[in-house]
Design a protein around this nucleic acid. Sequence first.
DNA 1: AACGCGATCAACCGCAAAAAA
DNA 2: ATTTTTTGCGGTTGATCGCGT
Length: 301
Amino acid sequence: MGRGRAPCCEKVGLNKGSWTPEEDLRLMAYIRKYGHANWRALPKQAGLLRCGKSCRLRWINYLRPDIKRGNFSKEEEDAVIRLHGALGNKWSKIASCLPGRTDNEIKNVWNTHLKKRLPKSEDQQSSPSSSSSAVTDRGESKAEAEAEPSEAGAVEAAALDDRIEIPVEPDSPDLWEMLDDDQVVKPLPCSSSSSSSTTTVVLKDPMEEMPDISIEPELWSIIDDDELDVAACNVESSGGEGERWLACLEKELELELWGGSGDAVANGHQEMAAEVVEGGDPVTCYFQRSLSSSSSLAPSR
DNA sequence: AACGCGATCAACCGCAAAAAA
DNA sequence: ATTTTTTGCGGTTGATCGCGT
């Protein structure tokens, strides 16, 4: 092993600053397909000129599909104030009590709105002694709110009205391996009407919470360069370019991941995994593969 | 219309903790 | 048990926007 602490990434030649739509696309596509087991290796495998740390931050604070966007409600603000009184500047702890809100977002809201709104005396008022009765905006106990997100399933699921239900072959372990925990709400037993050999997995709909992104024409040509058949998406034009792009991404990924039939799709994933190991660009590979198999994957509508 | 200023928020930086070797 | 690597956290910065003068 090397001496001393290695830098988190090779800083030279890496992009900094705001993320471009193409970078977002690459990161989303990669994580949805392969997850984020190793942030350090992720940028290279995803073909991103970014530090792993930067990718992680972008995913957690912006691209994660369960991010709640928009202004904080009064209840959320109250919860932040109470929790800050109990926990102090433990933004990640506070964020864990507010599903869909990130530590960064809460920190910003506190520093820009809530801190100055509080009377000076009230800064000390919400003391940790009140923590036993500290409740979130939904009235759950603090202990409950701090439970693992996956264990707060009922609460989380209640906030997710729109989902994608996808039949998955139970005897395709590689498919299950690729299911990101963040994406899976819960497995559902199949109804009697559906095939007895499949299990339905409920994914959060990433389209639901996505911000509007205006897409430069250049991005389409970039995607075209990767041979993504945009026209095949056939998304209604009323959705706007951002929605069109995201819907296209969603459709492509879902179709490639789940829409194909059985073994062919599973074999494709194994091949792709091998390409990743060999240092290829999985996103580009994905798009290229998508094209080559588009005849069987093309949406019918 | 132009300028200055404050507010907002995404992203970066450095450190510490946790995990792995 | 120690060292190295990776991840996560909190503080801070910088770009952008909107409002007032």
